[in-house]
Design a protein around this nucleic acid. Structure first.
Lengths: 226, 226
DNA sequence: CGGACGCTTCCATCGGGGGCGAAGGATGGG
DNA sequence: CCCATCCTTCGCCCCCGATGGAAGCGTCCG
């Protein structure tokens, strides 16, 4: 125990900047976040955030995964989270909008936008329902049954297919660690859900499945939300 | 859990300097250290160390107690120690002389010099034995029995009494949290113990009670060391 | 292919913190 | 009463790191 010597100053220095601390705190729950989001969270410009993230990366506090043109950063391990929590315990609490914060986190977990499509528990559940219910096959092609269902919702699968964008695919959901649906189809679904009042947009990526949406999703896709 | 927000950057900044980190690590076991010692530990000048300690004090990571012309700093609580330990876990280990370090700490705990007199477990035990055995009374005066014992050891109580320095008193032992003996008498005792081979001086405040010393202390004062 | 977007690299600026020497208080010893 | 010791304050220098604008690179979209 006593006698173990470690060079804590460099790691502490990585947490000693307000911007980096905000980023690390934002990553505390293990959910990966894109560089741009972290920049907004820290309230700094993109170049500054990039420099900060580079230092955190060098120091081994975070890891990065490239996905398309995004770079998702996450804490490198639970050890790091423990340090942040221990530090929080002896630090002055700041801005007691914690209630708001936690409510926000809970909502993001349940349903959020992944750029233009649905993610979170709801996204994963919908994807599972689409596959299990036979609306999509394993090649992400719309089945006859699926086409019928989508048409009934007012979604023109034919025009979606003409878009250059990928029609549909899997996207690993970061909070659920299970895939949700991607691509033009998924984007069209979310847009339509918002149009017909099944989903409401909140601030900051928040999405909320309405009661009508809950019933509609169950009715159309056999999708039951937790 | 999630949603708790704290301003960790300022506290982390206090640990982000190599010198301050060394000071905090040196204080990890809860033992108070004087500013000068901390300066040596950190390898910086006295003014620099003073500035660092001032910042640590402002930040609430350490507390200070004035004792004479010394200022003893200690960690303000177990919370702080936990942060340092958590940080150590994710930091690169440094200089694996940990065996030496821990041995040193153990020795200081058992017996060390408190400037010119004996402290640590041995110091506390000797003081208790002197009082319990009736060599000193409650006014720190030497009793008849005590005078005889001191004389047999070759200590001239009379000349000690002539010194302007305080003859004897209590000094709170920082590791034991119990008092040990202070003043001219205590200094003379330590000096004499070294002369007659009961105690050997080591580096860095270390003292070691020899086998002869163990027997002699038990014989002369009824002082048994743990 | 051209435009938009996300992110990074390069660059110049600039403020704050670390460093020590010298001097000033405070305390204790003789 | 003077000196030694311990620590702090003051003053100054220096350098690292934070910052954002402009430009470069890869990716996605149409």
């Amino acid at each position: 125990m006593t006698g173990f010597q470690a060079d804590i100053a460099p790691v502490a220095a990585l947490m000693a900047d307000r911007g980096r601390a905000a980023m690390l705190t934002a990553l505390l729950d293990g959910r990966p976040l894109a560089a741009g989001e972290l920049a907004r969270t820290a309230g700094v410009s993109a170049p500054t955030a990039s420099a900060h993230l580079g230092r955190l990366l060098d120091g081994g506090l975070v890891t990065v995964v490239k996905q398309g043109r995004h770079r998702y950063y996450r804490l490198s391990g639970a050890d790091v989270a423990e340090v942040i929590e221990a530090l929080s315990r002896i630090s002055a609490p700041v801005e007691v909008r914690s209630l708001r914060q936690s409510r926000h986190a809970r909502r993001l977990h349940r349903a959020r936008s992944c750029y233009d499509h649905l993610a979170g528990e709801a996204g994963v559940a919908l994807y599972a329902a689409l596959m299990d219910g036979g609306s999509l096959d394993e090649e992400f092609e719309v089945t006859e049954k699926g086409a019928e269902t989508f048409a009934r919702l007012g979604i023109d699968v034919g025009s979606l297919r003409k878009a250059r964008r990928r029609f549909a695919g899997e996207c690993l959901d970061w909070t659920e660690r299970r895939p949700h649906l991607n691509g033009a189809l998924s984007a069209a679904l979310l847009a339509r859900f918002v149009e017909i009042g099944w989903i409401e947009r909140g601030g900051d990526r928040e999405l909320r499945v309405t009661e009508a949406g809950c019933a509609g999703l169950a009715d159309s896709f056999g999708c039951v939300l937790p």
